[in-house]
């Protein structure tokens, strides 16, 4: 069978990058608003715009009728928006709309450029040493750390006044512009991790990603593989930011952030198709 080269008139990667930049700029604006005086009178602290804040304060709200301090009822709306995306398209929020995911993608891209990669060729393994791929013996158990983080936070939230993760909150560390020594420490660890391992936070520690992972199995908008067309060239495996092995056979993998880089990289038309239902 001869390979059909996919004609690309529309770049999904460029759309994603544009949306990610808009999300990052929007979050910075919320952070900027956070440091201006009179924030309280304008409704909602910085934390109240966080989707995960909704999860952190959900159990206390159900049991006491009050949200945790620094969170707000708006957290539930933001969480509902995130769950809505997950219901429709799985972990697409992580791949497209999460500001931390976007920052990690930017850090990876800039690291590659700083280390001398002039132009990233899609589907070809880079000669640049970073980002690293952790050995499977370390990678596999670490992937479960995010579920443990989620469980600990849910249990801890019942006896807390502020959200349990607040002092180490990555979104605050990157965007809030109100830094403490703990947040500086968190920021340095996050940046170092993101330089060393692509999507370091998403893979190993993100509790929101752990919450959304199950939706990859049930969401109606999904990628499917046409067996007759795929020749297992492995280009999609190389481009996968979440390092999922054998991507065409694991399109509903809980780790997949639905960034669509595999679809974008695939050179054989009809091998991967986006479907609803």
């Amino acid at each position: 069978m001869t390979a059909t080269v996919r004609k690309k008139h529309f770049s999904l990667a460029k759309s994603r990058r544009l949306i990610q930049w808009l999300v990052v700029i929007g979050t910075f604006i919320i952070g900027l608003r956070h440091i201006l005086p009179g924030e309280a009178s304008r409704g909602g602290s910085f934390d109240s715009f966080c989707a995960f804040g909704g999860i952190e304060t959900l159990l206390p709200y159900l049991f006491t009728g009050h949200t945790l301090k620094s969170t707000n009822l708006l957290n539930f709306s933001v969480l509902l928006g995130t769950l809505g995306v997950a219901l429709v398209a799985g972990r697409a929020f992580c791949g497209w709309l999460c500001p931390l995911g976007a920052v990690q993608d930017f850090v990876t891209e800039w690291t590659r450029k700083l280390l001398g990669e002039k132009r990233h060729v899609r589907g070809r393994r880079s000669k640049i040493i970073l980002p690293l791929r952790l050995p499977a013996s370390l990678d596999r158990p670490l992937r479960y750390a995010k579920y443990l983080t989620l469980a600990v936070i849910l249990v801890a939230s019942l006896s807390m006044v502020f959200p349990p993760l607040r002092e180490f909150c990555l979104v605050r560390a990157v965007f809030s512009l109100k830094m403490t020594s703990l947040l500086w420490f968190t920021l340095v660890v996050f940046l170092a991790g993101s330089i060393l391992v692509e999507r370091f936070w998403c893979k190993y520690f993100c509790p929101l990603g752990a919450t959304l992972a199950i939706f990859n199995k049930i969401s109606p908008v999904r990628l499917i593989m046409e067996n007759n067309h795929c020749n297992n060239c492995g280009r999609c495996d190389i481009e996968c930011s979440m390092d999922i092995a054998d991507v065409p056979h694991h399109l509903d993998h809980p780790e997949c952030v639905r960034c669509m880089e595999c679809l974008n990289t695939c050179a054989r038309e009809g091998s991967l198709e986006l479907k609803i239902g």
Partner: peptide, 28 residues
Amino acid sequence: IIIAAYVIFLLIGILLGFGPKEGGEGHG
């Protein structure tokens, strides 16, 4: 599709009363 899903569900949340009405440092 992603953006529409996000906006629609966010608006549903706000219409259900989960807006920033309480304001301030939370504890809504």
